[in-house]
Design a protein around this nucleic acid. Structure first.
Lengths: 206, 206
DNA sequence: CTTCGGTGTTGACAATGTCAACATAGCCAC
DNA sequence: GTGGCTATGTTGACATTGTCAACACCGAAG
């Protein structure tokens, strides 16, 4: 198999590079990540990573994408925990989302640090993010079915909810909102506000 | 006056540096900003900027802070336009906020790119951001007085609203939400949802 | 006029991303 | 098995960058 990106000399350099980069990001911020240092830590030379990623941005994209997938899994699991499709599902997902961000601030920032990471040739990130979004849309579809919220374009509702949760996570991470706040309470108030707002007449968009 | 940071050899290098950096950010992204290039463009040597800013991050903080002040001014003006303190005030501010972000995406990203910019010794950014937040709190206080929304901690309401608007702006800028969407309609739906939610019973936070 | 601090300049250094030339290891056809 | 091809990894090299140190200059204060 030539196509397999796996074990050759090192074992599975590609995976090791992603893991090491993630680790470095976790405890030094994205700025501390260096191609050369990653190589050093993994035990290869500085140019070795270039056999697996065309450049630094590509490696970071891969790292960011794994973040979206991990986050998606976590949201899935708390979503699945829901006994019925009660309104609590969105709330629990919101809490979990913010928790993930606070636990992995640098990684989270990287995931949305689209500035350097937006590249046509690397659709992986966008796809991972899109998958996450679709999860969210499903939640709103479910909430509509259960009559908890108003029937209208669930994607629009999901956009709004995503914005709110992502915004809160970002502001918390960056310290714009003092983390001393009771975060869970804030998340609950936010999700409740949104759901209440979506239950009421709000919807004459456009 | 020795304290005056102003005109000496150049005229007003400090201000020129900030302006030039802002310009470079505007059309090349933050990554394109280079101390040396800024110097080149302003017509000074590479080390000259270091007489006015201890390092690159400090200059970027200054640039980011001007962004918050400009944004604050714009929000003020649309807020002031409000005839009464009608509920429209928050909506208009939200629209203006998102407009600013879409018009100055790179600058906006820098403003919230707290990762590299969080430094104890440079409170300027935090202060500028805090001032913006206080503007928002005032809006919710006003909306409470007019009875448009529920009476509860206006800061919590402002946090939620800020999160939502900032999140939407971020996702739009980064292309996570297709800009092809009718942005204004989305903003209107969001602000309406939030206000409706704050009018209803949502508030048992904690 | 002299002097001094605020400004700006050039030289230098270490670190980084990345390319090119070169080495090698494992798998394939024979 | 063996020769060779490709995937993988290595070292050398280069331009660029942030930043510091040593030096030069200009204008105000005495």
């Amino acid at each position: 198999m030539t196509d397999r990106t796996g074990a050759y000399h090192h074992g599975d350099l590609r995976a090791a590079l992603i893991a090491e980069a993630a680790a470095m990001i976790a405890d030094g911020g994205a700025a501390s990540v260096t191609m050369r240092e990653i190589g050093r830590r993994v035990g290869v030379s500085r140019a070795a990573p270039y056999r697996h990623f065309p450049d630094k941005a590509a490696l970071l994209v891969a790292v960011a994408a794994t973040g979206f997938r991990r986050l998606g899994d976590r949201l899935d699991s708390v979503g699945a925990d829901a006994p019925g499709s009660g309104v609590g599902r969105f709330r629990r997902m919101g809490e979990e989302y913010v928790r993930f961000a606070l636990e992995n601030p640098a990684h989270y920032r990287l995931m949305y640090g689209r500035e350097a990471l937006t590249r046509e040739d690397l659709p992986e990130l966008r796809e991972a993010a899109d998958a996450l979004f679709e999860q969210l849309v499903d939640v709103f579809r479910a909430h509509q079915r259960s009559g908890a919220i108003r029937r209208q374009d669930p994607r629009r509702q999901a956009y709004i909810a995503w914005s709110a949760v992502h915004g809160l996570a970002s502001l918390l991470i960056d310290g714009q909102i003092q983390a001393a706040q009771d975060v869970d309470a804030l998340v609950r108030q936010m999700t409740a506000t949104l759901l209440d707002g979506m239950r009421a007449g709000a919807g004459r968009g456009a």
